[in-house]
Design a binder for these strands. Structure first.
Lengths: 193, 193
DNA sequence: TGTACATCAGTGAACGCGCGTTCACTGATGTAC
DNA sequence: TGTACATCAGTGAACGCGCGTTCACTGATGTAC
């Protein structure tokens, strides 16, 4: 059947948004195209009208995730007073909500190791998107120059992602909650000198 | 054929050691039992004389990797003067050799996100092994009590793992080398006050 | 000491499954005349 | 205005593949008698 003019673009966006969730939840190998499409009430065959490969989708979904989480983190920082923005970012990152909901959370905490195993060409696209994201959030950190703030944001972001990954692996709820508080204190100290 | 008395145990250890490498290199889904066994000049069918499942092997291989890297890190710290042990650990972790060779490197930097997606029962075993590893290396960090050192080691170890994962994803060699230096400075400052 | 049998690490074919991708087809709507 | 044709997002069967796991079998050596 023929569809209205913008229909294709809308479907494409729906796929990217759903993929951004599936990849973070299941990992890139755990998430299957057919399940993803069924989730959208579509069949898997149609997928290739929108993307050349699963890997192309991964790149777009990763970027989409960065934008989503970037918006949320920026909003949290904007709500805070000027001298408390770094703390607001860190507290948001190690919030119970973010820890318990990897599906809608930071893609670095969910997919960094996957990214590191990709082919060089793919990593170029992924790291490029990440660089924008990091620069964006670096604006909320202390530092004399943008370059210094970006460098700090890269260390802070990747470090927090690693720590959040580990905390998510902790089986005991209470231990996990306490680790979140430890993490907030550790990274706040690390970033504010 | 009947084999000498210790033969089975030796084969088992060979499998665990090889798996520790394969899992870190390929990820736990990328590493296949049949390839692993072929690497050891064995056939895949024999695998189940040694392990109940691939997941059981993963737990043992992860623990094995922690012990290996723990030995190397401890050796690096032991070589340093008492007041430079934390720096020695961090420099070793962000060495070019460790960055370029994930296969023999820190399993947290290679597999943490995979661990976080496992069933609770599996995570209990994995985190238990990790706890010992962290406490062991925490002894080289500054801190008044063992509890404080362990807490610091957990933040430092997971943070460095996340940052190393990201650095490994950077496509450009020069940028990657510079990021390693940035990381050394960032974490040294974070852990020594 | 010699013989018959038991053991069991390792073999390799087979099973069942899910995956990424391809492809001939569908059919409602847009377009050309 | 009406009609014939083109378009193309979506369908669903099919392909080829690799995986984890199972299982009947092998055969050199240990053990029982």
């Amino acid at each position: 059947m023929r569809y209205p003019a913008q229909h294709k673009e809308e479907t494409r966006e729906r796929i990217v948004k759903a993929a951004a969730r599936w990849f973070r939840r299941e990992g890139s190998e755990g998430a299957a195209i057919s399940n993803l499409m069924r989730d959208l009430k579509l069949t898997h065959g149609g997928f290739y009208r929108h993307f050349r490969s699963k890997e192309d989708l991964f790149v777009e979904a990763f970027t989409q995730s960065l934008n989503e989480i970037g918006d949320e983190m920026a909003a949290a920082a904007d709500r805070a007073p000027k001298d408390g923005q770094a703390k607001a970012l860190i507290d948001e990152y190690f919030s119970v909500a973010h820890c318990d909901d990897a599906t809608h959370g930071c893609p670095l905490a969910a997919l960094a190791e996957d990214v590191a195993r990709r082919a060089r060409r793919v990593r170029q696209a992924l790291i490029s998107a990440l660089r924008s994201h990091i620069t964006r959030l670096g604006a909320y950190l202390p530092g004399a120059t943008e370059e210094e703030r970006t460098r700090k944001a890269m260390m802070l972001g990747s470090g927090m992602a690693g720590t959040l990954s580990l905390i998510r692996a902790i089986p005991d709820d209470d231990v996990r909650r306490r680790a979140l508080d430890d993490a907030k204190a550790f990274y706040l100290k690390a970033v504010t000198q």
